[in-house]
């Protein structure tokens, strides 16, 4: 646990691009808000691995956003139902259901499509917000943090040694 936290701080404090961190959070939102064993999540994992998305941030954000996903699941299901039962969309869903990808996508389950829609919207919003927050942290908060008495105290602990060794 301490090593994960140390790695996370390393990522935030390092020179790694804020876009990579933001992409990790955004993609974690999609995986977290939808049932894990869904076809689209294979695609997301493919992107996570092939693009230079920050893996540490993704692995930390994923369980946290899954917890949030469980909390919003009832809302996601009702949104999903309204999308699937919308009269104007029924012809589309009907033809999609009759394709192989459609059949294995599980998009005809309210929780999957509802979670995916919320996940994608959240991802789109989280991406610029995360970039902004990482930049703010690096330019303003990071140096102030260094001055805190508590931070100085932490620097004497085993955790800091671990962080320091990871950073180097």
């Amino acid at each position: 646990m301490l090593s994960i936290l140390a790695k996370l701080l390393k990522v935030l404090n390092s020179e790694q691009s804020p876009g990579q961190i933001a992409a990790a959070i955004s993609l974690a939102a999609i995986v977290g808000f939808t049932p894990l064993f869904s076809l689209h999540n294979i695609v997301i994992f493919f992107f996570v691995l092939i693009l230079r998305v920050n893996l540490t941030v993704f692995l930390v954000a994923w369980p946290l956003l899954t917890l949030l996903g469980v909390l919003i699941a009832p809302g996601a299901e009702s949104i999903g139902l309204s999308i699937l039962q919308n009269p104007s969309l029924i012809p589309f869903w009907e033809s999609f259901y009759n394709t192989l990808i459609g059949r294995w996508s599980n998009f005809y389950f309210s929780g999957v499509i509802g979670g995916l829609v919320i996940g994608v919207i959240t991802a789109v919003v989280l991406y610029p917000v995360s970039i902004l927050l990482v930049n703010q942290y690096r330019t303003k908060l990071m140096q102030r943090f260094e001055q805190f008495h508590i931070v100085r105290l932490i620097k004497t602990t085993k955790f800091w040694q671990l962080y320091d060794s990871t950073a180097n």
Partner: peptide, 17 residues
Amino acid sequence: DKLAVQVGDKVYYEDEK
């Protein structure tokens, strides 16, 4: 299962198969 996001209700469409 309780700690995972569930698939929800299935909506049935006309099956061409």
